[in-house]
Amino acid sequence: MTVSELATRLDLKVYTGEQSTRERCVSGCYIGDLLSLAMSKVQMDSAWITIQTNMNIVAVSSLADGACIIIADGFVPDDSTLEKAKEQEVIILGSELSAYDIAKKLAELGI
């Protein structure tokens, strides 16, 4: 499944990521808010669900080669985070749902 389809199916808010970059495939998911843990646990092409909103999440997702970041519980990324994400072509999505509810839906979709 592509990030675009995922965003549509889960009705996610798209904060950053051009349509073309959202054609990237997603498989797997990691949930967590500690950067060092995420760094080693976010696998290539997986979605990372977090409530962190500061710009360091961009470096982590980009260095770990994650497919996208999904910010849970309605938290809103900082402006500096959005700027950095655009620059690094990192996709940031958002949802009002909790990490658990997002993950359940990802599982239903077979991700």
Partner: peptide
């Protein structure tokens, strides 16, 4: 703090361009 990780990103890009295996690039990046 805002620029932390920038050097790692640059090196990662360079290694990708040089054609290193993705596992190697990921280890270096982390």
């Amino acid at each position: 703090f805002t620029r932390a990780g920038e050097t790692s990103s640059k090196v990662k890009k360079t290694l990708n361009q040089l054609g290193f295996r993705p596992e190697v690039v990921r280890k270096v990046a982390i």
